[in-house]
Design a protein around this nucleic acid. Structure first.
Lengths: 159, 159
DNA sequence: TATTGTTATACTCTATAACTATA
DNA sequence: TATAGTTATAGAGTATAACAATA
């Protein structure tokens, strides 16, 4: 076989850019969210819960692509602040049905408004239509999302 | 059409989506990179080093948005595997000029080929043009970023 | 026996502070 | 005094294993 010195350009890697940008947003989000008492992953969990409605902890873990054991601690935090509720499922008493409380929904809405400014800053170089395009591309990439096809992360409410 | 007060929705929040997708890529990249003996952040550092050429550790830390103390350990790993070299700067002997070795460049190329399949999987829902659009949008969002973050857009994997 | 949630634990990642050597 | 790099270390994030309750 011919071992041609293929020093062509490397393949298109979006991963590094994604990693970088999401790191930026996460770092800034932490500052913004700190006064509200929680961290980005709490927000992520609440967002998923709003989209999924009641869901078992394992389903939540799959959606978040987090280990189930860590979801326990995450929910402990949120439950301590009365932002979510755990109820035993009547059908299968091993399961906990996790649901957003009213307070949780309120907190989430407030946090999302606070985060809007973070994104305005991070995506300052993109105009409105470009941001919409970016959103729809990311959304499409997530289309095969593990448990619930529609339930990855839906459109946030406007503030 | 600008004469009418068109109610434009605020741009949707992409932070959660970005976080999610980058998490996916990172998790899958770890599996792919493990046989090669390193982790995603090692690859990220090598990529930045290739793009930046020789650079001080602090410049590297800023580009990676990592704490300088952690860059030390990262470089220790890479230097132990002879993938990078640290030389004292002749101009300012406090500085280390970090550079990719030939072995490092080779390893990086191999790793990138391996990662191409990860991205093909994660972005299976997007066609080539959409991936190119996504790349250019992310790239534009990073435009104010110091030097260039890791990543190149090119033809599909040639490996 | 298999599954859901939980605890305990270890391993990794990240950030803060103190030290060195240069400037 | 200030800066580049290093070390030590504590805190957060994450994963593995064992256990209780339930199916």
């Amino acid at each position: 076989m011919a071992s041609l010195p293929v020093v062509k350009q490397p393949p298109p890697r979006v991963g590094a850019l994604l990693d970088h940008l999401s790191r930026r947003i996460r770092l800034r989000s932490e500052s913004v969210l700190a006064p509200l008492g929680l961290r980005p992953r709490h927000l992520l969990a609440l967002t998923v819960l709003r989209d999924l409605g009641g869901s078992s902890q394992q389903a939540l873990a799959r959606t978040l692509e987090m280990d189930g054991t860590n979801v326990v601690g995450l929910l402990n935090d949120l439950e301590a602040d009365h932002l979510v509720e755990r109820r035993r499922s009547p059908e299968d008493r091993r399961r906990h049905v996790v649901e957003l409380t009213d307070a949780g929904a309120q907190w989430l809405a407030k946090a999302e408004c606070a985060l809007a400014s973070v994104e305005d800053e991070v995506f300052a170089e993109l105009d409105h239509d470009q941001r919409a395009t970016l959103y729809s591309l990311l959304r499409q990439a997530m289309r095969d999302c593990p448990p619930s096809p529609a339930g990855c992360i839906a459109e946030p409410p406007s503030c």
